[in-house]
Nucleic acid binder design. Structure first.
Length: 373
RNA sequence: UGGGGUGUCGCCAAGCGGUAAGGCACGGGACUUUGACUCCCGCAUCCGUAGGUUCGACUCCUGCCACCCCAG
C-alpha cells in the first residue's frame, strides 16, 4: 500500500520552512523523500561550515517524522550555471540576483531532474508561494503571508518546472509555520531564518567578492566632476548605496548622506551624490529577456504592477513587449532601479514572470560638469 | 615674530562662566534566501598645550605651539 502513495521529493535546507513542508506532506500521506542539497563547498567567513549543522537538522527532523533523507551535491552545476554568471555580472558593473537564477537552474532544473529520476510525482520546497494548477497550466501566486512572499525569486520558472513543483507552506503565515514546528517538536522550530546568497550564506560581501574578482580602486566623483573620495573597485557598489562610501563632513556640503548614482566603467569612476536627488530615480526600464510563467505575455502591451527588487512594494507600470524583451514605464519615478536586478511582474496575486533589468530611463540624466556626456 | 584670525569626536559644526548639541562617516543590531535602501542603538570624562582667575571654565587672563590671512 506504500506504493499507492505519490512520491514527493522535498528539498530540505535544515530550516523551519522546509521542515514544516515535510511535516505537512507527511501528514497528507505522501511518500516523502527529504533531500539536502549541498551546492557550495567553502566555509564561511568564520571558517565554519554551516551546512554540517543544517544537515544535522535535516536528519533530526526527518527522523522525527519518519521519512528517509539523502543528500545531493550540485556544487559543480551551481558554479557553472549560477556563480559564473554572478561574477560576470559584477565584472560588468551590474548587480545580479543569483538567487533567481539558482531557482531556474539548480533547484528546479538540476534538482528537479534528479527528483524525476527518482520517479517523484513532484518536487516540493519550503518557498512561500502558491501554485494554482488548472487544466490550462500552473499559475504562480503570491504567498498568503505577503511579508514572506518569495515569488520574486521564482519568477523565472517555466510551466514545465512549475507543473512539477509543490509549495506546501505557501498558504501559511510564518507564525503558523513556527507554531506547527513547535507543536510537532521539530528542532528547527525556533531556528533563525537564513539569509544571504542561497547556498553560500551571509558573507562580508566585499571580502567575498575580492576572492574572485580583481579589485581596481579608483576615484569617486560628484556631478561637478570633483573627486570626493576613493572606491575599492566598482563591483563593490550598487546604485542607491549609502554605506561604505566613507564620505562625511564636507564643509561645502549639505550635511546629508552620499549615495551611489552611477558608474563610469570606462574611467573606473564611481559617481556619487549628496542627498536623495532626481538622478537617483528613473521613469522606466528596458529588459532584453523577459519570461512569462504562462509561456507568453498577456498582451503586446499591458498594465500591471512590478517589483524591481525583492521585498519592495508593488509599483504600477505599463509593459510593452518588443520581441523577447520589453520596455516598462513606471507610473511614478522609482528609486535606484538597477541593471542586473530582476523586474518581476504581477497581476494582483498572480506572478506573471520577469527578467533581468538591462537599462533604465533616468528621471534626470547624469551629467558630469566639464566632461563630455 | 608687523598686524589680524583660528584651533571642540575621523570630517563638518554648535557652545560665549555652570559642568561637551547636531549632521556626515564609522561600528553594532533589526529587517532580509541577491546586492541595496530603511529603522534602532552606540560613538569626545574631554574641548591645541602649559599655567592662572573662579565655588565652578570649552567658554575669562597669560605663555607657548600649530595653521590661515593681510602686510610690506
Amino acid at each position: 500500500m506504500k506504493d499507492d502513495k505519490a512520491r514527493i521529493v522535498l528539498g530540505m535546507s535544515g530550516g523551519v520552512d522546509s521542515s514544516v513542508a515535510a511535516l505537512l506532506l507527511k501528514e497528507q500521506g505522501y511518500d516523502v523523500l527529504a533531500v539536502y542539497m549541498k551546492n557550495w563547498e567553502e566555509e564561511d567567513d568564520e571558517g565554519v561550515c554551516t551546512s554540517t549543522e543544517d544537515y544535522e537538522d535535516v536528519r533530526r527532523v526527518s527522523d522525527a517524522l519518519g521519512i528517509p533523507y539523502y543528500t545531493v551535491n550540485f556544487a559543480r552545476e551551481y558554479r557553472e550555471r549560477v556563480f559564473s554568471y554572478f561574477l560576470e555580472e559584477y565584472e560588468a558593473g551590474r548587480t545580479p540576483n543569483p538567487d533567481v537564477l539558482c531557482n531556474c537552474e539548480i533547484k528546479f532544473r538540476a534538482f528537479l531532474d534528479f527528483a524525476m529520476g527518482l520517479e517523484a510525482a513532484a518536487l516540493a520546497t519550503g518557498h512561500y508561494a502558491r501554485l494554482e494548477k488548472q487544466g490550462e497550466g500552473a499559475r504562480l501566486l503570491r504567498a498568503v503571508d505577503l511579508t514572506k512572499d518569495q515569488t520574486y525569486f521564482l519568477a523565472g520558472l517555466t510551466q514545465a518546472q512549475l507543473q512539477r513543483a509543490m509549495f506546501p507552506i505557501g498558504g501559511l503565515y510564518k507564525k503558523e509555520v513556527r507554531r506547527l514546528a513547535e507543536a510537532a517538536g521539530l528542532t528547527t522550530a525556533r531556528k533563525k531564518d537564513s539569509t544571504g546568497i542561497c547556498f553560500i550564506g551571509e558573507r562580508n560581501f566585499k571580502r567575498f567578492l575580492m576572492q574572485y574578482l580583481p579589485a581596481q580602486p579608483g576615484d569617486m566623483i560628484d556631478l561637478n566632476g570633483k573627486v570626493i573620495g576613493r572606491h575599492d573597485g566598482l563591483m563593490y557598489y550598487t546604485l542607491g548605496q549609502r554605506r561604505g562610501l566613507g564620505i562625511g563632513g564636507r564643509a561645502e556640503g549639505s550635511g546629508e548622506s552620499w549615495f551611489v548614482i552611477g558608474k563610469d566603467m570606462e574611467r573606473n569612476l564611481l559617481i556619487v551624490q549628496q542627498g536623495e536627488q532626481e538622478e537617483l530615480y528613473s521613469l522606466g526600464l528596458g529588459a532584453e529577456k523577459v519570461s512569462f510563467i504562462a509561456g507568453q505575455p498577456p498582451a503586446a502591451s499591458f498594465a500591471c504592477t512590478a517589483k524591481f527588487r525583492y521585498r519592495q512594494s508593488d509599483q504600477a507600470v505599463r509593459v510593452t513587449m518588443h520581441g523577447a524583451g520589453c520596455t516598462i514605464d513606471f507610473d511614478r519615478p522609482q528609486r535606484a532601479v538597477t541593471p542586473g536586478q530582476w523586474v518581476v511582474l504581477y497581476d494582483g496575486d498572480v506572478c506573471l514572470g520577469g527578467g533581468p533589468i538591462d537599462e533604465t530611463r533616468p528621471l534626470k540624466p547624469i551629467r558630469i560638469a566639464g566632461r563630455a556626456q
